[in-house]
Every structure is written in C-alpha cells, then in structure tokens.
Design a protein around this nucleic acid. Sequence first.
DNA 1: ATAATTTTGTTTATTTTATAAACTACTTTA
DNA 2: TAAAGTAGTTTATAAAATAAACAAAATTAT
Lengths: 95, 95
Amino acid sequence: MQLKDLDPILHSQLRLKIVSHLMAAESSDFNEVKEVTGASSGNISVQVKKLQKAEYIKVEKGFKNNYQHTALSMTEKGTKAFETYVEELKKYLNL
Amino acid sequence: MQLKDLDPILHSQLRLKIVSHLMAAESSDFNEVKEVTGASSGNISVQVKKLQKAEYIKVEKGFKNNYQHTALSMTEKGTKAFETYVEELKKYLNL
DNA sequence: ATAATTTTGTTTATTTTATAAACTACTTTA
DNA sequence: TAAAGTAGTTTATAAAATAAACAAAATTAT
C-alpha cells in the first residue's frame, strides 16, 4: 500500500494551523491568525504569502479603524486541496 | 481554539510514512520501508536514526541470508506518540 | 507639537530540516 | 577475479521554517 505524498503546501505546522483556522472560520484576518497560531508576524507573513502564491487563500489588503488590515479567506482551490489532504492523511492514520 | 503544536518528529512526510507503515505492519525492515516509501536509502537512514533517537522505533541490526539486515518496529513510546499525534491532528482536520 | 509607543505588517538573515549524492563493506555471479 | 548487486552510512546540498531587524502609519503621553 504505497502512500501518496502529502501536499507539501499544507503539510507544514504553521500553514496547516492557518488553513485549519480559515476552514473553520470561513474568513479571518492577519491578527486573528497571529492569535490562534501563536506564531511571529514574520513567520505568518511568509507562510501566508506561500499559501497565496499557491492560490489556496485570498489576501485582501485594506484599512480598518485607520490601521492597515489584511483579510484572509480560503479560495475554492484551497478548500479542495485541504479536503484532498485530509482524505490522503486518513490513509496514513488508519482512520 | 488554540491548536497545539504537532509532534515535529512525526509531522514529517517521510517519517510519517515510515511510522504509518510500522504501525500497520507491527514489524518490518529497512528494505520494506524503502519499497513502501519510495525514498532513497540515504534519506531513510537519516530519518530512521531520528525516530530511533526519539525512541519511537526499535532498530535491530543483524544478518539475513548472509546480508546485513535491519529490522524495524514501533516502541511503546512511539505507538503512544503516534496515537497522540492522530488525536491532535483530528482537531486540525475537524474530524 | 513632538517624542515615545502601538499597530500591522514586510524583508532579510539565520537556523533547522529534508534529501540525495557519494561512499563503504560485504556478497554473489559471470 | 572482476563486475555487479545488496544493504546500508556519511556528508554535502537544497529547501523550508523561523525570528530578528526594519518600515510606515496611528495613537498616546509629555
């Protein structure tokens, strides 16, 4: 039973936390992600950019209460990738 | 809902394949791992060593048909770590 | 008014990790 | 006995994660 490779975009500690949060929350922002992950801004910035480049999440920059504000949400592609990842992972975990 | 960090020993593409295989097979060897993972000997050697150092797997070196032979199996600690990993991961995946 | 602090990030440098290439040692086969 | 195969290990390279340093605007304190 040859196990397939897991999607490397998703199989990362921090990116999985981010995506897991966005899947549950439907939509969120940079700060909320910072809170729920406990990661540094720098690390989040880098990982968000990777998720965006892969077109797994949508990044909308704007303003909120005079401060810059970055809204984050899953794309269709990201949602599907996550679901595929979950299905593949189940085989690893015997679920 | 703050997600806990996943066990970094297990949250690795190749090591997870190895452990997943050993969990299912009860016991195995270097070659079988090479076949089911499709990874290079070098990579497997390194990752097996990490799993051994963490005391997640038992590595028994001996001989079989005149050739050196490395038997691999889960330890109690490794089995528990895997089960904990699965439980934690379920929270990420909403399972 | 302006200096210090806070918010919300990005860029860059460092550390860690994964991977494969090169090597070792022994066995079998031609 | 030379070439090829088995079963790995060691080491060098490539990729990834992380944090430190930086930036730019907003707010608060003096």
